[in-house]
Structures are given as C-alpha cells and as structure tokens.
C-alpha cells in the first residue's frame, strides 16, 4: 500500500469508523458501505488538506474523488501534481 493510502486508511479507521475491523482498502464505496456520512466527508477533506497542504473546493467533494481508497489515492496524487 502506498504511503498516501496508508495514511488515509489509518485516518478513516481511527477517526471515522466505529468498527476498526472494517477492510477500508477493500471497500468499493464508502457511502454505500455507510463508512462515511456527510460530516465524515468534511472531516476527511480536512484531514487531506492538513496532511498534504492543499485545498479542496466544494465541487471536488464528490464521490468520484473521495468514495474509495483507490479514488482518494488518485485524487491526492492529482492535487499534488503527480
């Protein structure tokens, strides 16, 4: 697992999940699985901004960017210009 995925998944597990045994990496949709709700998304975005020092616009807060670990990894890479 890349460093980005590792950090994001650790955050989701320790801060957003009640059940720490959930397979974060294997979840296809955080929304569908009930892992992240509407405030959870904002906490996640805040964590991304704080950790990688970029800013996320409202229009970027969409499932296409944030709904799975793979999508998040790609999103962070893009934001970092990678």
């Amino acid at each position: 697992m890349s460093e980005i995925s590792q950090k994001v998944s650790e955050f989701i597990r320790s801060s957003l999940l009640l059940d720490s045994n959930v397979d974060v990496a294997g979840t296809a949709s955080f929304l569908e699985a009930g892992i992240i709700d509407s405030t959870g998304v904002l906490e996640l975005v805040q964590f991304l901004e704080e950790t990688w020092n970029f800013s996320v616009k409202d229009e970027e807060m969409v499932p296409a960017n944030l709904d799975s670990l793979a999508k998040l990894e790609a999103f962070v890479q893009r934001k970092l210009g990678g």
């Binding site: 904002l42 805040q46 800013s55 616009k57 409202d58 807060m61």
Partner: peptide, 17 residues
C-alpha cells in the same frame, strides 16, 4: 477549515456537526 474557503456551501455543515 470553514474560513479558508468563504464561498463553500458544504464546509459550514461541519460547524453544525
């Protein structure tokens, strides 16, 4: 987090939460 993007409609939700 809210103040950094004054136009965001979504961020104030976190204040409410």
């Amino acid at each position: 987090f809210c103040a950094q993007q004054p136009d965001s409609k979504l961020r104030p939700q976190l204040l409410r939460s």
